[in-house]
Design a protein around this nucleic acid. Structure first.
Lengths: 208, 208
DNA sequence: GTTTATTGTAGTGTTTATACTACGCATTTT
DNA sequence: AAAATGCGTAGTATAAACACTACAATAAAC
């Protein structure tokens, strides 16, 4: 039973290893500390399960997950994250993850997840399931910013560049309230809560 | 030998516990998962060492560290962080930490640090030492965010994470205007014009 | 060891943003 | 063809953010 752990923090990697080894004595646990190694090992060797942190330096966890799923589709991948499910769970599951756990989870949950996944099933916590269900309501198959209308996107870019609502109004010769409405719709469509989220999204998706 | 671990992520807490228990068989390891509990236990009971994550929800790690040092000055505190030393090490040491380790550290380093601190000394890695030394030089060549005071930096992080002025005021139990003033000073010191600039800076400098 | 700069804190008055609502015009869906 | 969305646009009322000012407590410098 070969398990591969990927996390850039040694302390966490070793902690996970000990938790797993204690409960799954038959496990042969290997680990990697960055995206490149993860990818290389993930597709170059054969694993019963891969447990990977979702936020590692370099490529985003989701990106690597997709790569792994493309080259080794049969290997189940359990994603671990520091973030609440809203952030990544849906994208992770869509990208083919066999499960999604936050680091708040109890050790026994990790073990349970691994066992369940090893038995060929997925492991979806009720928390994730809820988010997942919500995501099915809308047709959110498009990248968030692609759902924006032209005007909305125009405003989005200006917000991201640091312009205030009223500045944008001036530039576009529109009422402040109009811009506010656009902003609200942008937030709604992109499921974000603050301008900071928008900026982060824009940088990470090279929209700037 | 009583050790107290503080981290909001169960998986990490348990991992640390196992690492410690394995190498320090005489240790009696307890743990807490949030700032409030940490503070209560830290000053209410007697510990040989406290190991605390620096970024927990609620109060910032530095803030709690100061509190602990005020009420239980003799208890050594080893700070753990996800971030590279540049971000927090100097602040932590100044606030009285007995050491600063990142989660990239190897388990043996954690154990070594704990042992050294238990023997009454501080544990400063060469990495941290370097940053520390650098911080003593002229302040002109400091990175923009290093010029911020602790409070300012705290507010900076919250702004960057998308929190509004009033939310921050609530969290820190300060008047909105106070937070506004901090923001103005941050903008001034960092020579930036908008929250978007701050977010960009934070992402580019891995402060998130 | 007194001046000077920095830090933590808030009040006041003004400008901005937000929430909620609405409405006509296109475009889809049924 | 009728009904439901989606989009561009604002008004009003309320909440939040900002600029400016101030002041005491440290901390640093001279």
């Amino acid at each position: 039973m070969r398990i591969l752990i990927a996390d850039d923090h040694t302390l966490i990697r070793e902690g996970l290893r000990k938790i797993l080894e204690e409960s799954l004595s038959f496990a042969e646990v290997h680990d990697v500390s960055d995206s490149a190694d993860l990818f290389k090992k993930a597709v170059g060797e054969s694993w019963d399960i891969i447990i990977s942190d979702i936020s590692m330096p370099g490529y985003s966890g989701i990106e690597i997950l997709k790569q792994i799923k493309e080259h080794a589709p049969q290997t189940p991948v359990l994603m671990l994250s520091m973030h609440s499910p809203e952030q990544y769970a849906v994208r992770a599951i869509k990208a083919g993850a066999a499960g999604y756990l936050t680091k708040e989870s109890a050790p026994y949950e990790l073990v349970k997840a691994v066992q369940q996944i090893l038995s060929g099933r997925k492991y979806i916590t009720s928390e994730v399931a809820e988010v997942l269900a919500g995501s099915l309501e809308e047709k959110s198959d498009k990248a968030p910013h692609e759902q924006l209308s032209d005007r909305e996107f125009e405003v989005f870019k200006m917000l991201v560049s640091g312009k205030s609502i009223s500045e944008i109004g001036d530039i576009l010769s529109l009422n402040v309230n109009t811009i506010s409405t656009y902003r609200a719709r942008i937030m709604d469509k992109m499921k974000m809560q603050s301008n900071a989220d928008l900026v982060r999204y824009a940088i990470q998706n090279n929209i700037v």
